[in-house]
């Protein structure tokens, strides 16, 4: 086992334990005097309207698609970025060209009005 992964594993365990402990401790310590108004769903102080499982607008999937492309880009750039200080100027320029080509796609999507919040 490498020590790097041990640290990441410990970090994950501690990171899961702290919020769990916060919830458990608050459940153990807090006094409970429920009434119907307290138990209702909190929605910015307004009474809730409709179901809480609603269908999302179909236009949002363009954000998912654009995110997907840049997510795959991350996989290529991840080893490049990690060893950037060992690589020469040529490699840095290569990576910038790689990013530049994809930025052209982002600019295209932007100009088409695809990134506007609908």
């Amino acid at each position: 086992m490498q020590s790097d992964w041990t640290f990441i594993g410990l970090f994950l365990i501690v990171g899961a334990l702290i919020p769990a402990a916060a919830i458990v401790v608050s459940a153990l310590l807090s006094p409970r005097k429920p009434n119907p108004i307290k138990d209702s769903t909190y929605e910015c102080g307004i009474e809730t309207v409709g179901e809480n499982w609603v269908q999302f607008k179909a236009q949002y999937y363009i954000f998912a698609l654009v995110f997907l492309v840049f997510d795959v880009e991350t996989v290529f750039l991840f080893p490049w970025a990690l060893s950037l200080n060992q690589l020469g100027l040529f490699a840095v320029v290569e990576g910038i060209i790689f990013i530049g080509i994809l930025v052209a796609g982002l600019v295209y999507a932007w100009r088409k009005g695809m990134l506007e919040w609908v």
Binding site: I62, E94, I101
Partner: peptide
């Protein structure tokens, strides 16, 4: 490596 970038660009433009 660079062709992969062009492929991703094509996917993005196609999706848009």
């Amino acid at each position: 490596f660079e062709v992969a970038s062009v492929l991703l660009l094509a996917a993005l433009v196609g999706a848009v």
